Simulated assay, not measured.
Amino acid sequence: MSDDHTRVRDFFSARAADWDNRFPDDGPAYRAAASALGLRPGDRVLDAGCGTGRALPALREVVGPAGIVLGADLTPAMLKAATDAGRDRAGQLLLADVTRLPVRDASLDAVFGAGLISHLPDPAQNLRELRRVVRPGGVLALFHPIGRAALAARQGRQITADDLRAEANLRPLLAGAGWQLTSYVDEDARFLALAVREG
């Protein structure tokens, strides 16, 4: 396991048990983001870096009982918290590294990533891995339940010019990985960037 992976796993392991209690009001934002993916009943979706699985029920709602919902996370403690919360009933949980997914090429209709991009060790390469598992025309959603400015204020920091989630940085990063940014929303109540897999 790389130093980046160890750092991410340690960070989230220490916070897993209390994660949902820290952010109890995010449910509506997750439901709105899941709806924005444009998925249909029977579609297949992965929540990459699913954490405690807060997106899984919302994703299950949009793909219905015939759809496939996967939740992959690197941190066993987060997956345990997801199971303890009963979210494993909404989707299949995988202890997996989103930089090397145990998923067939072009087998999914969408990937959902909440708070994911800032934890990727090599965003350009890792976004190509997410592209690999999505069919042409499929969707990637990069989401956070609050926007960049609100998140920076919560963390007591300033937004910097090199923030990967800034549209000017994110658009070329996605394009280089084979995604076309189609929608970008960064407001206090949410951050949601949608991209379509090209080719």
Rank of each mutant, 00 (worst) to 15 (best):
residue 35 S to M: 15
residue 176 G to I: 14
residue 84 D to I: 12
residue 101 L to Q: 03
residue 193 A to Q: 09
residue 33 A to Q: 04
residue 71 G to N: 15
residue 87 R to T: 06
residue 149 A to F: 08
residue 42 G to S: 11
residue 190 R to T: 11
residue 119 H to C: 08
residue 119 H to D: 11
residue 86 G to R: 04
residue 156 G to T: 09
residue 125 Q to I: 00
residue 59 L to V: 04
residue 32 A to H: 07
residue 170 L to D: 07
residue 165 R to D: 05
residue 13 S to T: 11
residue 183 S to L: 02
residue 113 G to C: 07
residue 95 L to N: 10
residue 62 V to E: 15
residue 192 L to E: 05
residue 166 A to N: 11
residue 178 G to Y: 05
residue 120 L to V: 08
residue 191 F to Y: 14
residue 39 L to Y: 05
residue 29 A to C: 13
residue 24 P to L: 12
residue 33 A to I: 06
residue 185 V to K: 11
residue 2 S to M: 08
residue 150 A to I: 03
residue 7 R to Q: 14
residue 24 P to F: 01
residue 195 A to M: 09
residue 103 V to E: 01
residue 30 Y to L: 14
residue 155 Q to D: 14
residue 90 A to G: 03
residue 26 D to F: 08
residue 38 G to F: 05
residue 152 A to P: 08
residue 7 R to G: 10
residue 4 D to H: 14
residue 19 W to I: 02
residue 166 A to R: 14
residue 192 L to K: 01
residue 98 V to L: 04
residue 125 Q to R: 15
residue 91 G to W: 02
residue 108 L to N: 01
residue 71 G to P: 13
residue 162 D to R: 13
residue 53 G to H: 01
residue 101 L to R: 00
residue 172 P to T: 13
residue 143 F to I: 01
residue 26 D to Y: 07
residue 104 R to T: 05
residue 175 A to N: 09
residue 167 E to N: 09
residue 47 D to E: 04
residue 116 L to S: 09
residue 131 R to S: 00
residue 178 G to R: 13
residue 136 P to D: 04
residue 197 R to N: 14
residue 124 A to M: 12
residue 124 A to Q: 15
residue 165 R to P: 00
residue 157 R to W: 00
residue 50 C to A: 08
residue 178 G to W: 09
residue 103 V to R: 01
residue 179 W to D: 07
residue 82 A to F: 04
residue 183 S to N: 13
residue 121 P to R: 11
residue 79 L to M: 12
residue 65 P to K: 15
residue 181 L to D: 07
residue 25 D to L: 10
residue 23 F to I: 06
residue 193 A to C: 08
residue 33 A to S: 08
residue 183 S to G: 06
residue 128 R to E: 02
residue 170 L to Y: 10
residue 76 P to G: 14
residue 162 D to E: 12
residue 191 F to T: 06
residue 90 A to H: 02
residue 17 A to I: 00
residue 40 R to I: 14
residue 95 L to D: 09
residue 55 A to R: 05
residue 124 A to V: 11
residue 160 T to R: 14
residue 16 A to N: 04
residue 130 L to K: 01
residue 87 R to D: 00
residue 143 F to N: 02
residue 36 A to H: 04
residue 160 T to E: 12
residue 34 A to V: 11
residue 78 M to H: 08
residue 36 A to I: 04
residue 194 L to T: 13
residue 134 V to K: 01
residue 181 L to F: 13
residue 182 T to H: 10
residue 160 T to W: 05
residue 113 G to P: 06
residue 175 A to D: 12
residue 103 V to K: 00
residue 89 R to K: 06
residue 117 I to T: 03
residue 108 L to M: 04
residue 72 A to W: 07
residue 57 P to T: 10
residue 172 P to R: 09
residue 155 Q to V: 04
residue 152 A to W: 03
residue 171 R to Q: 14
residue 148 R to I: 00
